[in-house]
């Protein structure tokens, strides 16, 4: 039992950090552009698929981890510049537009990549024991990379010019325009960074979950839940919510059936939405 709970705790944190990365991208885009990006799950999938091709080509997971997000970031820029830009001020319309983009990306990947799941080998295969069970070192590595990426994002937001601009736009868009901040450029880079974050988590999760064109669907819903609980636009809230939710799920699933646990947690989510629509950690 102790081993069960300690694995559940550790795994909850690791998985929570991966989910946090996905949710951060979604939330960053929402916080700035007020766009609910339904294609976010598809971008996560695209990152994993791109990584699969890169690994076939170069044989290195680490190269893929760097190049795949760059590629998806560029796709993100194209989506923002080409499609979202004109409808940015209509949140409901952007939901529908990104829903269409999701369909297009999924179908294109199905045509090119095929429908069967493919595998990305884990670059680290060591395990270490926890009581009578074992835990894969790769997951710790993934958690570690997630933390590095999140710290990078934090530094980017706090220390760089773009970061400052982004925060200014979040706080008061009108004022930001007045101060001469190139808001449209900020939007573009935000979308690029958000998409790249989705791709990063796609590449990182791929050795655990395998690559398939539909892999973004379930993840999208989970990411939404995290963003809501953490508070829309509240980045730190998303990280805390991601870890918290996956901890509760991990420990909870020791005791109840997963479908019922899901229904139960969705019901709680409804209550959160009604009582604190700004999220648990919103001000």
């Amino acid at each position: 039992m102790i081993s069960n709970i300690s694995i559940a705790l550790m795994n909850g944190i690791v998985w929570g950090l991966i989910m946090a990365l996905i949710a951060l991208g979604l939330n960053l885009i929402f916080g700035l552009l007020h766009v609910i990006n339904m294609a976010h799950g598809a971008l996560y999938m695209l990152g994993a698929v791109a990584a699969w091709y890169l690994i076939e080509l170069t044989g290195s997971f680490w190269i893929a981890l760097i190049i795949a997000p760059l590629f998806v970031g560029i796709v993100g820029i194209m989506i923002e510049r080409g499609l979202i830009r004109t409808i940015e001020d209509k949140p409901i319309i952007t939901i529908i537009c990104t829903f269409g983009i999701m369909l297009v990306i999924q179908e294109l990947v199905l045509m090119i990549f095929g429908g069967a799941p493919r595998r990305i080998d884990s670059p680290i295969t060591q395990r270490f024991p926890i009581f009578e069970l074992q835990y894969p070192a790769m997951r710790i590595m993934i958690a570690f990379i997630s933390i590095i990426l999140m710290s990078g994002l934090w530094i980017f937001l706090k220390k760089t010019k773009y970061g400052l601009w982004m925060r200014a736009v979040v706080q008061d868009r009108e004022m930001a325009v007045g101060l001469g901040i190139p808001v449209t450029k900020v939007y573009m880079w935000t979308f690029a960074v958000g998409s790249a974050l989705a791709a990063f988590s796609g590449v990182l999760a791929a050795p655990i979950v395998s690559v398939e064109f539909m892999m973004g669907r379930e993840v999208l819903i989970m990411a939404f839940i995290i963003v809501i609980v953490g508070g829309m636009g509240n980045l730190a809230g998303s990280v805390v919510a991601a870890v918290l939710i996956s901890l509760i799920q991990g420990v909870g699933s020791i005791f109840v059936s997963p479908s019922m646990a899901m229904v139960f947690s969705l019901a709680i989510l409804i209550i959160v939405l009604l009582v604190r629509p700004q999220g648990l950690f919103g001000e």
Binding site: A8, I208, V209, V219, Q249, S259, M262
Partner: peptide, 19 residues
């Protein structure tokens, strides 16, 4: 033990397996 059809992370379920 039942897990959702699209489960990504199985560790929470695998650790429930009787010793």
């Amino acid at each position: 033990i039942f897990a959702p059809p699209a489960t990504a992370d199985f560790i929470p379920y695998l650790q429930k397996v009787d010793p």
